[in-house]
């Protein structure tokens, strides 16, 4: 049994609990290579650093269900490594998504019916074609993600956080 299924072993009071756990906490991982990974808008999507140019990033995504994949720079130039098979950026994206969210959660989101542990095992299950995805949309979500770090600390009470107890990652 992996972490995910242990986490989802809800007790019988789960439906009536104000502090029921819905989303498992993410696991820490190195962010330098793949600073942004998310399961959103029906895609596994994220931003992968270029290996050669510090100012360049690649925007990569894989659709849930269809497994259609895409990779381009944030200026919408197609990734040179992308052919009929996914490129190394997509491999990195899947590897880091599995580190962050666990194999089971990523597989379920992508609608992959398989058990496994590694990103490579998950990649082997994908049967999609090259697809076009609006890189600008994903990149703007990354910018939005980074903008959280610029929001000032608040010292006014936020009692709504009572609904979000911490913990569960270890």
């Amino acid at each position: 049994m992996d972490d995910e299924s242990a986490f989802e072993k809800h007790d019988s009071g789960w439906e009536r609990a104000s502090t029921a756990r819905v989303v498992p906490p993410v696991r820490p991982r190195k962010l330098a290579k793949v600073p942004f990974v998310e399961l959103a808008d029906g895609r596994l999507q994220g931003v992968v650093s270029s290996g050669s140019d510090i100012a360049r990033v690649y925007v990569s995504s894989i659709g849930a269900g269809t497994h259609g994949f895409s990779c381009s720079t944030n200026n919408n130039r197609p990734c040179g490594g992308l052919g009929s098979r996914p490129c190394k950026h997509l491999q990195s994206l899947v590897d880091e998504a599995v580190l962050q969210h666990g194999f089971a959660r990523v597989a379920r989101y992508l609608q992959v019916d398989a058990a496994g542990e590694s990103g490579a095992e998950l990649m082997a299950q994908l049967r999609g074609q090259r697809d076009s995805t609006p890189a600008a949309t994903v990149f703007s979500r990354f910018l939005r993600h980074l903008a959280y770090l610029e929001v000032p600390v608040s010292v006014a009470p936020v009692p709504e956080l009572d609904w979000f107890p911490t913990g569960g990652a270890r």
Partner: peptide, 11 residues
């Protein structure tokens, strides 16, 4: 109370 904005990978 101190309330900070963060992202999911800061844990």
């Amino acid at each position: 109370n101190l309330v900070a904005a963060k992202v999911d990978t800061i844990v």
